[in-house]
Design a protein around this nucleic acid. Structure first.
Lengths: 210, 210
DNA sequence: TGTACATCAGTGAACGCGCGTTCACTGATGTAC
DNA sequence: TGTACATCAGTGAACGCGCGTTCACTGATGTAC
């Protein structure tokens, strides 16, 4: 599941790039706890000291993976929104964006866990904050477009975007952790459909949301 | 912040109880990663081998804390719902329940992280699954009562409860991790108010939600 | 009331483990002149 | 074209660290008779 979607966040040398690939595979298989410099070195087939040539700490390597994760998320949302059925409707594009978020998170649960463990990332790592902000800004733009056609027109856009983000994030993380399935017995799709239906009307409202 | 809300999930010996208290303090200060048997022993003032007399593994100790966390959550939601302003309205009680969830989670972020790291808990630990299910069932009852007065009457109750759970869980976890504050700039309360306003009408609807 | 024994909580030394990190080193590649 | 040097990627031994776990042991408390 580690594929070409994970583009470089800034240019790295070829050996560093190979370490990143090994790190993505290690993360997917062993989880955030299992992502250590030594484990990455083993998977990359180099000695355990080699990664320190390219990443000064575990935190730097994790931050690189997180930055790529945010970039991949941003791109997946962009693609899904632009290809949404009934794509001319901002409401349908917003819905597609929410679905894409959940899809990305559920497909890469360990990566998502890593992306949001801020205490284990380096906030100053090049590109990390920018890519995270870019993904959120895209969500804000979709929310604003939806507001322009009548979705919760009186609400502050960033506040509204934050709460939609929290909704899809909560669905994705609770599902990935198995909590939703074991506790509620419902399917991921049924929960997502219900949640989005409450948020986003099926037809463009004509002032009914005001 | 570790207070009497944390009641035993099943009777423990007095020394085990002291270890649980030390574990709660360690968890709050050092996070999930820092919660080790040796760290708990140090804080409890006993030798590092002593905890194994009372908990057969780190996982068992963590599961005990998680079970107490679910119990405290269940009680906090129950209390908040029963004391909600305008308490006779199921919609206001559901709103109060959602707020209580976020309040509990934000007050004990490390405990919440632990409660939902299922891979580090023992699912067979006495009381854990029961208390987790009890908290969710309480939410389901509040949602059902709200549906009875007109909230999303056509929706499956457990699906609806799941998506409300995901909403408040997402708000709480993203906020605790600092992601919402750093990315959106909005306050926790403004996001929570906006999210609940979308979900739960301010006045009892008379068929407008059908 | 006294003796013998069992149970319980805790001690402290020891073990092996994986980890990050350091360091002197090798060997290949690139660059200066 | 050849020599000298610098840079880069990687090696492998070694270090100290905190961890879970084992184990023989101590000392206090409780129970049987």
């Amino acid at each position: 599941m580690v594929d070409s979607v994970y583009m470089p966040s800034h240019p790295l040398s070829a050996p560093a790039e190979r370490l990143v690939e090994a790190a993505q595979a290690t993360l997917a298989e062993a989880g955030v706890e299992g992502l250590t410099l030594r484990a990455v070195a083993r998977r990359a087939g180099v000695s355990h000291g080699a990664p320190l040539r390219h990443f000064e700490s575990t935190s730097a390597l994790r931050s690189e993976l997180a930055a790529r994760g945010f970039r991949a998320l941003d791109e997946a949302i962009d693609k899904a929104a632009s290809q949404a059925p009934g794509g001319s409707s901002p409401l349908r594009r917003l819905e597609a964006a929410g679905r894409a978020y959940v899809d990305q998170a559920v497909a890469n649960p360990a990566l998502f866990a890593l992306m949001f463990r801020q205490e284990e990332l380096d906030p100053a790592y090049p590109g990390l904050a920018e890519r995270s902000a870019a993904a959120f800004d895209q969500l804000v733009r979709h929310v604003r477009a939806a507001q322009d056609v009548g979705l919760e027109p009186g609400q502050d856009t960033r506040v509204l975007a934050s709460s939609l983000w929290a909704l899809v994030h909560g669905i994705a993380t609770l599902w990935s952790q198995g909590a939703l399935a074991s506790t509620s017995g419902a399917s991921l799709d049924s929960i997502l459909v219900a949640a989005l239906a409450i948020w986003i009307p099926q037809e463009t409202p004509e002032g009914t949301e005001a």
